[in-house]
């Protein structure tokens, strides 16, 4: 897309919001803090009307064409029912799946055919390539509000809180579904993503060098081989602590709950205790702007970060 920063800011001011299933369930604090921060910044969210599952990981691995259809319907709803051309998905899984559907419809005739066929059967408009732009919550705040404007909103800030930013695997992989990334300049990096680092630095955090920011956490194997996931997560937590982090910032509900749950499991199963706290980046941004922990759903996180945040004078 060749629009200017101002064009993009205008377009992202009001977007269709696709919370997906996680943000309405296990990741409610992410939903609460995303909405609260958006409202505080004057960014408008309108839920995608009558949204459905994106196909998540399960459908995609059984029948990728059905997953493409499911994700395409979300984009079709945004376009035809909400009347918007931007969908914002804070969940990496949803974001990734909508991006993948966009790529498949544009590049795979079979996917396009399936989408048109099922859409006709279901009685709604089929989604066509390029009708909407799917963005992540990080894009939404970074470009819809702007870093300099955000700086002006900071009240108190994060006071040098040491943060390891964990992006997980689905935010940048596979590369081909994210054609707007890795272009240099102000585009997001595919190998060392930095948008979350950028926003939290503006909010007063001290981002630590964290080499495992896109490393696999074994998320999808949490149930089939929990020990493997626990070991992978424990290593991520230990690396964050070794880097000096007090907090791991997340931007994905699956990563977030995996880190929280396996931190507890590592203590139980492997007698390995780690103390780093896990907090959504939207919660940290909200705190930096002077919002209360309760308003940001921090009390509902499994990882108990409030004592640390109080001790540091942030909450």
């Amino acid at each position: 897309m060749t629009d200017t920063i101002d064009d993009r800011k205008q377009r992202y001011k009001k977007v269709a919001y696709y919370p997906g299933c996680a943000l309405e369930g296990s990741a409610q604090p992410y939903d609460i803090s995303t909405r609260a921060v958006g409202k505080h910044l004057g960014l408008q969210l309108e839920d995608v009307k009558d949204w459905n599952c994106c196909g998540a990981m399960e459908v995609k691995n059984v029948d990728p064409e059905i997953q493409t259809y499911l994700s395409s319907r979300v984009m079709s709803q945004a376009k035809n029912k909400n009347g918007t051309d931007v969908v914002m998905a804070p969940c990496n899984g949803c974001y990734h799946n909508l991006k993948k559907a966009e790529y498949d419809i544009a590049n795979k005739p079979k996917s396009k055919e399936t989408v048109e066929k099922i859409s006709a059967k279901a009685g709604h408009e089929a989604y066509h390539e390029g009708e909407v732009e799917t963005i992540h919550a990080l894009d939404w705040i970074k470009w819809g509000y702007g870093e300099e404007e955000l700086r002006a909103k900071i009240k108190g800030g994060l006071k040098g809180l040491k943060v390891a930013n964990y992006y997980g695997c689905m935010y940048t992989r596979p590369r081909h579904i994210f054609p707007e990334k890795g272009l240099g300049g102000d585009s997001e990096s595919l190998t060392k993503p930095h948008y979350m680092d950028d926003l939290l630095a503006v909010a007063g955090a001290e981002n630590v060098d964290f080499p495992l920011k896109t490393a696999c956490c074994g998320g999808a194997h949490s149930l089939s081989d929990s020990d493997m996931s626990t070991k992978l997560v424990l290593n991520i937590l230990e690396a964050a602590e070794a880097a000096g982090a007090e907090v791991i910032a997340t931007e994905c509900p699956t990563c977030h709950s995996g880190l929280e749950m396996h931190q507890i499991r590592a203590l139980k199963r492997l007698s390995k205790d780690t103390n780093v706290k896990v907090v959504y980046f939207t919660q940290l941004l909200g705190l930096a702007m002077g919002m209360s922990p309760r308003k940001l759903g921090i009390h509902a996180n499994v990882s108990k970060s409030i004592p640390l945040l109080k001790e540091r004078g942030i909450a």
Binding site: M57, K60, N61, V62, D63, P64, H96, K100, C169, M170, R173, P174, I177, C216, G218, G219, A220, H221, S224, D225, M228
Partner: peptide
């Protein structure tokens, strides 16, 4: 578990 990494970011069915 050959599927490790498959179910998330590789998008391979």
């Amino acid at each position: 578990e050959a599927g490790l990494g498959d179910f998330c970011c590789s998008s391979r069915s």
